[in-house]
Design a protein around this nucleic acid. Structure first.
Length: 855
RNA sequence: CCGGGCGUGGCGGAACUGGUAGACGCAAGGGACUUAAAAUCCCUCGACCAAAGGUCAUGCGGGUUCGAUUCCCGCCGCCCGGACCA
């Protein structure tokens, strides 16, 4: 017998599919559509195992749905703008575009070698002028619709990459790419008004039924809605400022009688007003601005305040004055940038009050506590209770107290944690923001007929700052409004913008407008979106915002404001780590192919034979060097083996550990099925009139598998589908070839194997299918249908318990009545042994499940 | 600190709405074939006691139930997300 040779079969079938245009998606109103999309990759140069997993999962869905008769849209493209291209260009003295497109070519070839069923006709890269021209058109429409604006803001400045970072791109106080400590700077920046949509982005989460609860919750927390009260403190007359009031925001207005101070942000106008007049204040504010904003630092950071000397008046007691502090922990961009402090019921306020000797008066007393004896120690009380020491509020609940206060003063207000999305980047390799700055007219949008505003080819990247800014001529242009000379905007857009609408563009990638509404109408929404959970917040939230913006500007219908009907977040690919130690005991990491491991799990370096520590399995990463290159695996075993292993064992949402043994096992299984297939293909049996028990048993197994695999694919439990296919192959192996009825049943089973394996190992399945005598490729063959009559059993084996412990089994006809089953259980000799001659107190018969005898 | 999730053999994991715990795979051990190896095939494989057969077992402790991996309460451990948001 021949071994299955993936290196021959895989390119062959890839060519067949390409020649037959098997995956090109055309609109067809007569068929239901299915749009399956995996998050498109950044063209770093090589695919990695994370891609292999992500795209294998998507391909199972795409191929399965195609076989089920859906008109499947399964596109692929490139998230191609971004800093790595600039960094690589600097290193290699090349152009970011050249580098990017070369990477795309390499990765496209790798994806094609994996046999993924993409419609390559729809491919685009976000750095294609055709794509970003449309993005610029969208930007202009959003600008006109008031969804984009410009403002001065304190930004996170990455000193290494010399660019602005979104809050979300700051991780542990460091730039998400450079790892450099982020500084605060004030710049004039472009913003998307995402916060205007906070309420509806939050409300619509309820409707995202096909999304994991975890992601929905993360989004809700990110948007962070809170209901509170905005009200004014009168500022007591003083010599320092003309300001008459201080507006604060609170969610605990019930504790207003526990207030002991007010505090404002160092960035607050009042702080600026007082800075020159109060000695030492300007220095204090400068100090706050320099403060380390890392999370770790914030956690331990000292609460610092500066007493301004001015006072505010309590709204319910004109004689009650409170000091006003500038405090380092007040954020200018949340609420009003000013608060009142109630130390008894807020830990941060308590710490502050203790430090500056301010009074701590409890105003909420827990039930079953004597109010007279209730005191606050080191911890603020934030639990429920009744209001005390609070004049007209005494005796009320927290909720009643809030109502009573809000009825008398201020305005009820909802605040969100979500801030507007700053999209300006001082970078070259991004989508240029299509406006010009004119001395006479101000900011003027570029005319749509002049799009795209194309990136210049000749740039110098080897200097800090924005290459567009220092380009000798690119900035110079003519004002579209007045015709005088003007300057182009040199900011480019955050690359998250590029990925916020690419899924819509895939429906009509060559249209002369951003979208073609008739294509959108047919193809949107994405029925199944698949990607890593690391994009659970930003990319998905931005996409949801962008779709709403596109709807308001006429580029999407109302029905498409939620782009992804279903979302699946897959786990990571992990691998063991290997390290030796340097002279100081620090780990030195080694790649898997540099290490040999004995059967007793002892590892050594191939080169020197030095002992190697085997570490825990973590996400494949360059830093730990625990990466396995898909290209090596494909060259050694073939794409199908890699795909099969990815889908076996681990549920898709969990991490999967890549192991050499596991890959071997996957390869072995394919060879086993191939041997069976060759054995079976040697005969072409007719369907017999009758089947013996063994043949009938095998047929039942086949049809149960057909049903089960379909359910498992629909439910994204591909590991279970794989297990069922192992079971079926075992059943085929065990069945002896011989009589005609068995030969037929085996043939039928093997055909089902090929069909059911096709979404996972398509080349292999095609080869088996052909071997079995089929001329039409599997990819054009409908999904098999389970014969319902073969799914039902006439006799069931029911477990019988005595007092909840399994003591035996009985075989009963499926249609047996409860009392018959009970009778059979009680008269079963094995069961009677456990009944000690007693008569049962109770017998529970669950039809089709179990019998429990209680004695 | 806040929010969420998870905890099952040596390992990855099954177990439908509360109904036979450990499917399937990996690893391991034994055997067959072979001059030998590879490949392949067969058997064993949670722990303990044992002759049949039983006892214990799903992180720990309780509870509900005829019956709990599954539901409830309290611990312990791990993972993820968020975090000066008033």
């Amino acid at each position: 017998m021949e071994r299955y040779d993936a290196s021959v079969a895989e390119p062959k079938w890839q060519k067949v599919w390409e020649d037959r245009a098997s995956f090109s998606a055309e609109r067809d109103e007569t068929r239901p559509k299915f749009y399956v999309l995996e998050m498109f990759p950044y063209p770093s140069g090589k695919i990695h195992m994370g891609h292999v997993r992500n795209y294998s999962l998507g391909d199972v869905m795409a191929r399965y749905k195609r076989a089920r008769g859906f008109n499947v849209l399964h596109p692929m493209g490139w998230d191609a703008f971004g800093m790595p291209a600039e960094n690589a260009a600097m290193q290699n003295k090349t152009h970011p575009g050249k580098w990017t497109y070369a990477n795309i070519d390499a990765m496209r070839a790798q994806l094609k070698a994996m046999g993924f069923s993409y419609d390559w006709n729809r491919e685009f890269a976000t750095c294609d002028p055709d794509y970003y021209a449309q993005q610029q058109a969208l930007f202009l429409d959003m600008l006109e619709a008031g969804l984009v604006y410009r403002k001065n803001s304190v930004v996170n400045w990455d000193p290494v990459d010399q660019t602005v970072l979104a809050n979300e791109q700051v991780i542990d106080g460091r730039g998400w790419r450079s790892g450099a400590l982020v500084e605060r700077r004030e710049l004039n920046q472009w913003f998307f008004r995402i916060s205007d949509m906070a309420e509806e982005l939050l409300a619509a989460i309820d409707g995202l039924k096909g999304w994991p609860d975890k992601v929905r919750l993360m989004q809700a927390n990110w948007i962070g809605r809170s209901e509170g009260l905005e009200f004014d403190f009168a500022i007591a007359p003083n010599d320092l400022t003309d300001a008459e009031k201080l507006t604060v925001y609170t969610t605990r207005h019930d504790t207003l009688f526990g207030a002991s101070f007010a505090a404002v942000s160092p960035d607050h106008p009042l702080a600026a007003d007082l800075a020159g007049k109060v000695p030492g204040l300007a220095e204090f504010i400068a100090e706050c601005r320099q403060m380390d904003t890392t999370e770790a630092a914030l956690e331990t950071a000292e609460k610092k305040g500066f007493d301004t000397g001015i006072e505010v008046v309590h709204p319910f007691d004109p004689d009650w004055r409170m000091p006003v502090y500038i405090a380092n922990f007040i954020l200018m961009d949340y609420g009003t940038g000013a608060i009142f402090g109630c130390p008894a019921h807020d830990q941060r306020d308590l710490d502050f009050a203790r430090k500056y000797g301010l009074s701590v008066v409890p105003v909420v007393c827990p039930e079953e506590q004597d109010p007279a004896a209730f005191e606050i120690g080191a911890e603020a009380y934030i639990g429920p209770g009744k209001l005390i020491n609070s004049a007209f509020l005494d005796g009320r609940s927290i909720a009643e107290g809030k109502e009573a206060v809000a009825d008398r003063i201020g305005t009820r207000k909802v605040n969100f944690r979500l801030r507007d999305w700053g999209v300006s980047r001082q970078r070259y390799w991004g989508c240029p923001i299509p406006v010009v700055h004119c001395d006479s007219c101000g900011i003027v949008p570029v005319r749509k007929s002049d799009l795209p505003v194309e990136l210049p080819e000749d740039v110098t990247l080897d200097a800090p700052g924005n290459p567009l800014d220092r380009h000798p001529t690119w900035r110079e242009t003519i004002c579209p409004a007045c015709g005088k000379s003007a300057r182009r905007e040199t900011d480019t857009m955050d690359t998250f913008a590029d990925s916020s609408w690419y899924f819509a563009r895939f429906t009509s990638p060559h249209a002369k407008t951003p979208t073609d509404l008739s294509d959108i109408d047919y193809w949107m929404n994405v029925d199944q979106y698949i990607g890593g959970v690391e994009h659970a917040i930003l990319h998905l939230l931005y996409s949801r915002f962008w779709c709403r913006a596109m709807q308001r500007t006429g580029h999407l219908p109302e029905s498409a404001i939620e782009p992804f009907d279903a979302l699946f977040t897959q786990g990571m690919v992990t691998h063991e780590t290997y390290c030796t130690r340097d002279s100081e005991g620090r780990p030195v990491w080694h790649a898997p192919d540099e290490v040999t491991i004995t059967e007793s799990r002892e590892a050594a370096l191939k080169t020197t034979g030095d002992a190697v520590e085997i570490g825990s399995s973590t996400k494949m990463s360059k830093s730990k060097r625990n990466v396995v290159d898909p290209e090596t695996i494909v060259a050694t075993y073939g794409a199908d083996t890699a795909r099969w292993f990815m889908l076996s064992d681990s549920p898709p949402e969990r991490d999967v550990e890549w192991t050499a043994a596991g890959v071997e096992g996957a390869a072995r299984f394919l060879q086993r099925v191939w041997r069976l297939a060759q054995e079976i293909a040697s005969t072409q049996p007719e369907k017999p009139a009758e089947f013996g028990d063994e043949a009938a048993g095998l047929r039942k197994a086949t049809h149960r598998t057909i049903k089960g695999v379909g359910e498992d694919i629909e439910g994204f439990t591909f590991n279970k589908a794989v297990a069922r296919l192992y079971e079926l192959s075992n059943a085929i192996s065990k069945s002896a070839a011989g009589h005609d009825d068995l030969a037929y049943a085996r043939h039928e089973a093997m055909e089902a194997m090929a069909q059911l394996m096709e979404p996972m190992v398509p080349h292999f399945a095609e080869e088996v299918w052909k071997l079995l005598g089929h001329e039409t490729p599997l990819v054009e063959t409908p999904w098999p249908v389970a014969d319902e009559t073969l799914l039902t059993e006439s006799v069931l084996v029911l477990p019988v318990q005595v007092n909840g412990k399994k003591r035996g089994e009985i075989s009963v006809p499926v249609e047996a009545a409860k009392d018959v089953i009970e009778e059979m259980a009680l008269t079963d000799a094995g069961i009677q042994r456990f009944m000690d001659g007693k008569s049962p107190k109770k017998v529970i018969v669950v039809p089709g499940r179990i019998v429990n005898v209680v004695i």
